[in-house]
């Protein structure tokens, strides 16, 4: 099975929503700033629930925030 990785557009979406800080996003989603930083950097794959919450904050469908390539 070919290796695929989970990537995301959180950095871009934060920029597009008035340069929302990682801490602000974290508090809206219910995780720490460090966890948002780890997700952005690809060092942590969030749970499905957390991924949906992040997408909800940006008002985007899940596949516009996360991709699996």
């Amino acid at each position: 099975m070919p290796d695929r990785t989970l990537s995301n557009n959180i950095r871009v979406l934060r920029f597009m929503t008035g340069e929302m800080t990682q801490a602000d996003l974290g508090s809206k989603v219910g995780v720490t700033r460090q966890t948002i930083a780890a997700i952005e950097a690809g060092k942590y794959s969030p749970t499905l629930e957390c991924a949906f919450r992040i997408a909800e904050v940006f008002g985007k469908p899940l596949e516009e925030v996360f991709s699996w390539k």
Binding site: S27, G30, T32, A38, Y44, P46, T47
Partner: peptide, 13 residues
């Protein structure tokens, strides 16, 4: 700790 709420465990922790 930069914020008091960061002391709580989240899913990654």
């Amino acid at each position: 700790a930069d914020r008091p709420e960061s002391l709580a465990l989240d899913e990654r922790d």
